[in-house]
């Protein structure tokens, strides 16, 4: 391969050797004085490093960075746990099933005792299972209750227009441990998204209906901070295609556009002191002397007036 030759290293070199060779080479061909050769060396170096790291650890698992940070990773772990809960009753059944085998008639008394024993165990297993089911039901109920409570607050927030531009009314979302539950998170995400899409729909129709002067009494545009919080909690941008299909794409698109545009920033706001700032978009157009009829008429009127005045003065 070309790259080995450019750096002048043996084919079985390790990372440290490659780095040393690269360092040596680029000290001879510095980026500021010899940019072309530097770039060639740099490309070779990058290619070699990639090859070597592939060889040394062919199937090294790397946690994708975004996942490590974002709640994504937490969600997936919780998903597994959620599954574990779902699987548990089935496991109890299988472990109980050997007990369900019909007892062998060996001796009556023994069989009887055995039968009783089996019966007791069966009972216990059934009870355990019932408890588990009960547990699940309770958990389901708790989950449902939490969900309803959150959804209620969310709906209330949506009714109060003001809360769509402030972050505080939504802070309670971040404190709910249920958000770490994958299924819960997903459901809440969908409900919230639906509400938001409905709000945007209202915004659109309102915009069409009313004149500009009355616009400020209509529904408000949610602020970036609020949308960003939702996005952070529910990873909306990660599921953009899916969500757009789920809701009406036309209505949902502005939400993602807003998220993509990032926070509002007005550089002028940050200035210190109280100097007046004039915004000049581009060079002022040089004023062109243009001929137009209005000018001509004006001149004619002016001249005729002058003539009249002359007449008045000199030919009295």
């Amino acid at each position: 391969m070309e790259a080995w030759r450019i750096l002048g290293v043996a084919r079985d070199s390790d990372v440290a050797t490659i780095k040393r060779a690269y360092a040596l080479k680029i000290k001879q061909h510095r980026p500021d004085t010899d940019p072309v050769e530097f770039q060639r060396i740099h490309q070779a170096y990058k290619a070699l490093l990639a090859t070597v790291s592939r060889q040394q650890s062919p199937n090294r698992e790397r946690t994708p960075t975004t996942q490590a940070f974002s709640s994504g990773l937490i969600f997936s772990q919780q998903d597994e746990q959620g599954e574990a809960v779902a699987v548990a009753p089935a496991a109890a059944e299988t472990s109980a099933s050997p007990q369900l085998d019909p007892p062998q008639p060996e001796a009556d008394a023994e069989a009887d005792a055995a039968h009783q024993e089996t019966e007791r165990r069966r009972q216990a297993a059934r009870q355990a299972q019932a408890e588990l089911v009960q547990d699940r039901i309770l958990q389901q109920q708790a989950r449902q209750q939490a969900f309803d409570a959150i959804l209620q607050r969310v709906t209330e927030n949506f009714q109060n227009q003001h809360s769509l531009i402030r972050l505080e009314p939504w802070q309670f979302l971040t404190t709910s441990p249920w958000l770490l539950d994958g299924e819960f998170n997903h459901q809440l995400s969908l409900s919230l998204f639906k509400l938001l899409v409905a709000h945007y729909h209202e915004l659109n129709t309102h915009k069409r209906r009313t004149s500009r002067s009355r616009k400020r009494y209509g529904p408000v545009q949610p602020s970036y901070a609020v949308l960003a919080l939702f996005d952070q909690l529910f990873n909306w941008q990660g599921q953009q295609t899916w969500l757009e299909r789920y809701a009406d794409e036309q209505v949902a698109r502005p939400i993602f556009n807003r998220l993509h545009d990032g926070p509002d920033v007005d550089p002028v706001k940050g200035l210190r002191g109280h100097a007046t700032v004039l915004k000049v978009e581009r060079d002022p157009e040089p004023a062109k002397a243009t001929f137009n009829w209005e000018n001509l008429v004006g001149w004619l009127v002016a001249i005729s007036l002058l003539v009249q005045m002359f007449k008045a003065v000199f030919f009295r």
């Binding site: 550089p267 200035l271 007046t276 700032v277 004039l278 000049v280």
Partner: peptide, 12 residues
């Protein structure tokens, strides 16, 4: 005013 670098804003 570094925030306005590269714009044509005039500061009075």
């Amino acid at each position: 005013f570094k925030r306005l670098m590269g714009t044509r804003h005039q500061i009075k």
